[in-house]
Design a protein around this nucleic acid. Structure first.
Length: 588
RNA sequence: GGCCCCGUAGCUCAGCUGGAUAGAGCAACAGAUUUCUAAUCUGUAGGUCGCAGGUUCGAAUCCUGCCGGGGUCACCA
């Protein structure tokens, strides 16, 4: 890893001590020493690091927690990077590291630049992340945008911690919605040709984007599609409309800075017989049968009737009911093709899969997970992240949206209004499973309660200091290689050490966010980091002028502080890079 | 009615997979501006972590049951 994960460092230290204690007989050999935590102390006053190792192991070691802690503490004191160790409460061990330990972290940052916090690629760690997968029936809306950002940033995070990531988009191009899309397009096309087709049927897609596409088609091809459809049906026009819609979506995604590696078509899955194969696999396992489902309890749909169906035994894997795989007209259900699709992912070598879905799909999670377990004999691992709704607001008031009334705000509208970076950052200011308010006015405010601005501003301030440093130094005296050699032991003020500690925790934040699949943690981390910096800045600007970064009379001290400021800028930029947000060097 | 998510300060939300006295921002109140960009900072006040049980050395966190809000519910995708 580029940059030390200091919790792991201490953990390894303790593990070593425990093994030694086993050798000397202080600790029974049978004790499992894997399960204990090494974490930041909740209260800073308790120290930099706290571990519950003595509490966690006392029972199986048959020792009192504080006695065991005593033994461990005695050994920890030998580590000369540790300032002090003490036992607290029922048996916690609190560790304070020496300033020089923290100061040295800056060297790591400067050495690694934007790679700070990254872990070397492990070619065997494959992971597939499927996100967006919006139906190709129109432009993306803001809800899609959230899933897009969450997925994309999670992909970046996983890449940063060493995974070989494949970013994937599943094109739902096989269902009835596409038929409606095609008919809607044909309707508009006939209109564009000046033919009298009456009013548009209720179920058709009314959007302007289709009318526009139809006009282009009429201009380019004349009336040739009327003939084609009469003779051959909708197949080739369907192809045209899917391609056009995907182009629209790709361009929406591109304006958010998102480019998928792989697009998989549902029709290809069906045409390649993969659904049949997947179902055959399940049949052989005895997981498919003909049966009649109970009606949904409580609220029975009007048109419900008992009907024999081909069912997958999802209940055997924790789902609530068994799930149909065939429609009454004999074609596959969406679930059936989706099963085949996930089997396809697994066959391509992905044991680890992540799907990012919208809130409206939450009822679908259990069956999909069941299917993955069934199809891969439990070897495949699927995690589904559900993104809750985005409530668009206009200065505190909810924005009423309706496709029909034309007040519908697309993702593209929002990006045009506030910019890609703001959209990306804001989408991560809540955890994915909580609803998110997106206020078009507030995100443009330049104040502390706008996190995008607040973080950008701290980066700009760093850059400002480095620019002003050119009054004291030549450019060639303060590049990163020079700053590495600065006497960082001069950074001793508690505000400085505090800032450095937060900088030093970036590698853990990256790893934690990646492993728990929680990209929002990056946004919160950057906010905290920025706050520590603004605080130090203000201290220097008035209370104690001695804390200013630039001290013209003391070049050595200034260099040390520049090393810190530069490290901070690198860390913020590195975090923003993960989020896909451009760091600003100057703000007006 | 079943399932999924949410419920933490007046408001908007964090809480690092079970740790110690539960944290930020906004709003309120009191301060700091001849600046390395005050677009910022410092302080005060504010809580029965929805309710009730359970698990254990220890629960906002895990389990069960309620209450409230949102989403979803065979042959749509």
């Amino acid at each position: 890893m580029t940059g030390m994960n200091y919790f792991n460092y201490i953990r390894n230290n303790i593990t070593e001590i425990l093994n030694n204690l086993k050798k000397t007989g202080c600790l029974p050999v049978s004790v499992d020493i894997a399960n204990f935590s090494v974490e930041p102390a909740r209260d800073r006053n308790h120290g930099d690091i706290a571990t519950n190792v003595a509490l966690a192991l006392s029972k199986s070691a048959n020792l009192k927690p504080r006695d065991l802690a005593q033994e461990i503490v005695a050994c920890l004191k030998i580590n000369d990077e540790i300032e002090s160790v003490e036992i607290a409460g029922p048996g916690f061990i609190n560790i304070i590291l020496k300033d020089i330990f923290w100061q040295t972290r800056l060297v790591e940052v400067l050495k690694n630049g934007n790679e700070y916090g990254s872990i070397k690629k492990d070619l065997n760690k494959l992971i597939n992340i499927e996100y967006v997968s919006a139906n190709p029936t129109g432009p993306m809306h803001v809800g899609h945008g959230r899933g897009a950002v969450v997925g994309d940033v999670l992909a970046n995070l996983l890449g940063k911690v060493g995974y070989r990531v494949t970013k994937e988009y599943y094109i739902n191009d096989a269902g009835t919605q596409i038929d409606i899309l095609t008919k809607s397009l044909f309707f508009r096309y006939q209109e564009a040709l000046g033919l009298d087709v009456g009013n548009m049927p209720e179920e058709y897609y009314p959007g302007d984007y289709l009318a526009e596409l139809a006009r282009n088609l009429a201009e380019k091809d004349g009336d040739k599609w009327v003939q084609i459809i009469k003779e051959e049906g909708y197949a080739s026009l369907k192809q045209v409309s899917i391609e056009a819609m995907m182009e629209l979506i790709r361009s929406d995604l591109f304006s958010l800075g998102i480019v998928h590696d792989v697009f998989v078509s549902e029709r290809d899955i069906v045409n390649n017989n993969e659904v049949t194969e997947a179902l055959e696999t399940l049949k052989q396992k005895g997981l498919v049968y003909q049966g009649v489902l109970e009606p949904p309890k409580g609220r029975r749909p009007d048109d419900w009737e008992p009907r024999p169906q081909t069912l997958f035994k999802a209940t055997q894997f924790g789902d609530d009911v068994d799930r149909p795989v065939k429609k009454s007209d004999g074609s596959w259900t969406y679930f059936a093709t989706d099963m085949a699709y996930h089997r396809d992912k697994f066959k391509r070598g992905f044991k680890d899969m992540i799907n990012i879905w919208g809130a409206d799909h939450s009822g679908y999670v259990k069956r999909m997970k069941s299917a993955v377990v069934a199809l891969t004999d439990g070897l495949g691992q699927l995690d589904v992240k559900i993104c809750q709704m985005v409530n668009l607001m206009d200065n505190g008031k909810p924005l009423k949206m309706s496709k029909r009334s034309g007040t519908f705000v697309t993702l593209r509208d929002v990006i045009d209004e506030v910019g890609k970076d703001v959209v990306r950052f804001m989408m991560l200011t809540r955890k994915n499973d909580a609803q998110l308010d997106f206020d078009l006015v507030k995100v443009k405010e330049q104040s502390r309660d706008n996190p995008v601005f607040y973080v950008q501003y701290s980066h700009a301030r760093c850059c400002s200091v480095l620019r002003n440093a050119l009054d004291i130094f030549n450019k060639s005296e303060i590049d990163d290689n020079d700053l590495i050699k600065a006497d960082i032991s001069l950074l001793t003020d508690s505000s400085e050490i505090n800032l450095i500690k937060i900088i030093a925790s970036w590698p853990q934040v990256v790893l934690g966010a990646a492993e728990s699949h929680e990209p929002h943690r990056v946004a919160y981390y950057l906010y905290e980091l920025s706050s520590a910096f603004h605080s130090l800045w203000s201290k220097g600007s008035k209370e104690r002028v001695s804390l200013r970064f630039l001290v013209p009379k003391n070049r050595t001290l200034t260099l040390a502080r520049l090393a810190m400021v530069r490290s901070l800028a690198i860390t913020i930029a590195s975090g923003l890079e993960v989020m896909g947000v451009e760091p600003l060097e100057e703000m007006e």
